[in-house]
Design a protein around this nucleic acid. Structure first.
Lengths: 165, 165
DNA sequence: AATCTATTTGTTATATTGTAACGTCAGGAT
DNA sequence: ATCCTGACGTTACAATATAACAAATAGATT
């Protein structure tokens, strides 16, 4: 099963998830943060998923692993992972996706297909620096940014009607 | 009362609101869309506000004008105005702000101060084009984008502790 | 090992944000 | 006059997110 956060071309999902998990452990080890079982499982769930998942979707899956069916279970793990830069929150979808570029410069751009709902995490150096420039001209200090584009992925651009949802 | 969508420097609020309203009418006249009383009032409310407002905050104000206290009243007007490009939705805040640059090329950048919660609508040509470039390299067609930065505005950058909320 | 402390988790309850669905009404076209 | 469309009123509910506090646990300290 391919997944699609990195770009719209399928790639080796298992390898990529394994590597992301290893990077996560690395990163947490350095800062002294703990990758507890719920947190680890939450990250796995996101890595396994072909699409971004809502908090309640993550929760459903955690429940099948024996965790309580209570929103804070999912939200706490997700918030932690987001804080650590291991997971991204995709606001347009009220959803979360594992970060596939842990450690790289972080102001990722998300490309969201309105037809098939795939999400790609695109390289964004240029966008981030343009944003910095725009902010600097107003003397604004950027700490975090959310950059999301809604549109059509290569697969859907031919088949979809136009107009935006 | 200054407001702050345009940038962090205060400016003539009333004049700016009046002009924005005139632009809105223009624009709607051209496309045959109707600026009904609720819609007009909703836009006014946002133009009058010094900060972005949540849908339920807009609703509260509409209620004092005699409208029913029902979410769809606000959401319908807001969704309409967003579709017309007269209002922007700020996802990080689950809030809405009147557009102050109606008609200009539209992929506005929002700078959100985490201390004082002011929101500035910044010029964004560079950011938008960088985003287009990034998307094009993945053969993705951008239809709409959300570009938001969280950080500190000039007034708060000196006084605020660091760390992100 | 026992204790202390800070972090994490379990749990209950509730707040906030957003929609579906359906009937009614007003305005313009035929 | 009738029909049609888009807007509005209204009820109900769905989906998303957080507050608050008690219990447990890990790691540090003695």
């Amino acid at each position: 099963m391919p997944h699609d956060h990195a770009d719209f071309a399928p790639h080796d999902h298992a390898a990529c998830a394994t590597e992301a998990m290893a990077q996560a452990e690395d990163r947490l080890g350095q800062t002294g943060q703990r990758l507890t079982p719920v947190r680890r499982r939450t990250l796995e769930i996101l890595l396994e998923s072909p699409r971004a998942l809502g908090a309640y979707e993550v929760l459903e899956r955690l429940v099948t692993d024996g965790y309580a069916n209570q929103p804070p279970v999912a939200y706490r793990a997700l918030d932690f992972l987001v804080d650590q830069g291991l997971v991204h929150r995709i606001r347009r979808l009220n959803a979360f996706a594992a970060c596939l570029h842990v450690g790289e410069a972080h102001a990722p751009v998300f490309l969201i297909c309105r037809e098939c709902h795939m999400v790609a995490e695109a390289p964004a150096a240029g966008v981030a620096s343009a944003l910095q420039d725009a902010a600097r001209s107003l003397h604004f200090t950027v700490e975090r940014s959310t950059i999301e584009a809604l549109g059509l992925c290569p697969a859907c651009v031919g088949t979809a009607p136009h107009g935006v949802a």
